Computed example of a mutant assay.
Amino acid sequence: MKNEVHPYSEWIDLANRRLGGQVLSCSDDFFAEMENLIKPEAPVFIDGKYTDRGKWMDGWESRRKRVAGYDWAILKLGNQGRIKGFNVCTTHFAGNAPQQVSIEACNSKTAPDNSTEWTMIVPQQDVNPDSNNFIDCDSTGVWTHLRINSFPDGGIARLRVYGEAVMDSNWFLPGEPVDLAFVKNGARPVSCSDMFFSSMSNLIMPDRGVNMGDGWETKRRRGGRECDWIIIKLAATGSIKKVVVDTAHFKGNYPDGFSLLGITMPEGEHPQETSEWVPVIERQKLTADAEHFYKDEVISGEQTFTHIKLNMYPDGGISRLRVLGFISNGE
């Protein structure tokens, strides 16, 4: 399985169910349920499959509107964040897609209601049927909820919301260690040597991996570089104190070992594989299907980093990486 490449592949899907994304309400989902909008799987079409309401469709589909107005659905993002772009996917909705969409946003501690003030972040515009509709978002706001408007009605298979999570600093106690490599704190992978079997973004997702596909796995290398690697932008500049490397479900394809390095970069810049990295943990052995804990092995002391690089020797799969430390005072 090769991973999908799209204009926002460097960003995470903030509406992802694994982060806690939800579809809260909608104006109408007579033909197909609103919850389908954020299903992780690509939409499918099953010829000849019908329900008592009509053709079964893998998406959110409202009935044909016979009065003025438009349909809408409200989503709670899995994490507050800044949005870079959307995919309003109408795959398999060939004769029943909306003509246009717009997207509004708000930042709210509670579910939106009739008093909520929405901000337009994607003005009303055309979308193509049976297509991936990639739409840039110029908003710099931090948002928790979205309302997608469908003009005048019809079906949308999936909504992907690409951006960067923003840490809720109020959640942490003074001096509390933070997982600097956790997606919900704002970390994100920026590049890797290979992700043939599964995405690099899985490495920093919540919880332990559910199966072998829920990790970062490279193909079998045949010569060339010494190891596979991944570069992660940390949630904040900080010092590293403890590390957990989890090879859950990787039994015949776990790496022989790993090492961890760090670097500090100016805001907005990302390091390369060959940048001047500082050792954080020297090469360590790994075992199959297990969590590995490192504290005394961390050699970087009080040095702070903006990015880390995990080297995986020689190849294989790692399910999760946790990097616990302290945010620097300058953050």
Rank of each mutant, 00 (worst) to 15 (best):
A236F: 09
F197H: 12
A15L: 14
G316T: 00
P152V: 06
D28V: 10
H307V: 00
G69E: 03
E164Y: 03
T287N: 10
G223D: 14
C26T: 06
P189N: 05
K233H: 08
C227F: 13
C106P: 05
L75V: 03
P189R: 07
I240S: 06
E104V: 05
L286C: 09
T264Q: 10
S102K: 13
E282H: 15
K2I: 03
G213C: 03
G330M: 05
S201F: 13
N114H: 11
S300I: 04
P314H: 07
M57E: 01
P255F: 03
G252W: 07
W118E: 08
P152M: 12
K295M: 09
E276G: 01
V190S: 00
V122D: 04
I74A: 03
F182A: 15
D136N: 14
C106H: 05
S169K: 15
P7W: 07
P152H: 09
P189I: 01
G21L: 11
W60I: 05
N3L: 14
Q303L: 10
Y70C: 10
S102T: 10
T237R: 15
I230P: 00
L146H: 09
S193V: 07
V122I: 14
R158V: 04
S300T: 13
F134L: 01
Y8P: 02
G223K: 11
T264V: 05
G175M: 11
L324M: 14
V243D: 04
F293S: 12
V127S: 08
T140E: 15
